[in-house]
């Protein structure tokens, strides 16, 4: 006990009294992790590149969706109303519905587009959140969710121009087919969405969808790193982003 105990109690007590302050336990703070150090050296900007052609090569493939939903305990309600989606396939016209011109390359427009949170550089969803339950992580550009703090007002869902956010209309647990105990489920009444697998990233793994895609249609990486795969892919091919006119600067790119 001794010093250890007193130190902990004192600081912890202060923490609790200053609830809003969000102070941390400095006395017991862990040593800096390697990843944290890297973050301080220079910020990163994670991005995803979806190669639509490659994606279309396997018709009806849902590997990425399944991997993601399995990993994140995303429930399957099997009805449109209560549906929760982190990553999903939708028609090109829905995904890019301001692209009205008729005679685009059919292989692109007739196939589905893979949709997920865009992790915008200028996200409207975090701007509207009244509790800072969703915010953009400065160090790597991931738009985060704090499910402990979300009050379920759904303002972010309303503000997102891409339909990337889902709300837990009901208790998700009974609808999770196979639970991954490593990842929490959510509770009813909070909003959720793709987090670029930030937990996996922290462990040095790739996002689940990227790992699951056998076609290599999904490329993930740091845009700040000139050597990264994403940078190269974007340099080599022409890419589009969803609703660029809104100025949200999505970090999900589609190679056409």
């Amino acid at each position: 006990m001794g010093i250890d105990r007193r130190g902990f109690m004192k600081v912890s007590g202060l923490t609790i009294l200053g609830i809003a302050g969000g102070a941390s336990i400095d006395g017991l703070a862990s040593p800096q992790t390697p990843r944290k150090k890297a973050a301080e050296a220079g910020t990163r900007r994670y991005a995803m590149v979806v190669d639509l052609k490659k994606c279309h090569s396997q018709e009806g493939c849902r590997d990425c969706v399944q991997a993601c939903h399995l990993y994140h305990n995303v429930p399957d309600f099997d009805n449109r109303k209560d549906e929760i989606k982190w990553i999903w396939k939708d028609s090109f016209h829905h995904a890019f519905h301001s692209m009205e011109h008729e005679h685009l390359e059919e292989s692109i427009t007739e196939g589905p587009a893979l949709l997920l949170c865009n992790h915008c550089d200028n996200p409207p969803c975090t701007r509207v959140c009244p509790t800072k339950a969703t915010w953009k992580r400065e160090e790597d550009g991931i738009v985060m969710m704090d499910w402990h703090r979300c009050i379920g007002c759904r303002y972010c869902v309303v503000a997102c121009p891409y339909g990337s956010r889902s709300f837990n209309w009901r208790d998700p647990r009974p609808h999770i087919k196979e639970v991954n105990p490593d990842f929490p489920t959510r509770t009813r009444g909070v909003v959720e969405k793709c987090t670029f697998c930030e937990l996996r990233l922290a462990k040095g793994q790739k996002p689940a969808c990227v790992e699951a895609c056998k076609e290599g249609a999904l490329i993930f990486g740091d845009l700040e790193d000139p050597e990264s795969e994403v940078r190269k892919a974007l340099q080599d091919r022409f890419s589009i982003r969803r609703k660029p006119e809104l100025g949200t600067e999505p970090e999900v790119y589609y190679l056409v």
Partner: peptide
């Protein structure tokens, strides 16, 4: 969705919202 957390509005005031 989470009325029991409604005080988060004041505990984490967010002038941008």
């Amino acid at each position: 969705g989470q009325p029991s957390r409604m005080f988060n509005l004041f505990l984490h005031p967010s002038p941008n919202s």
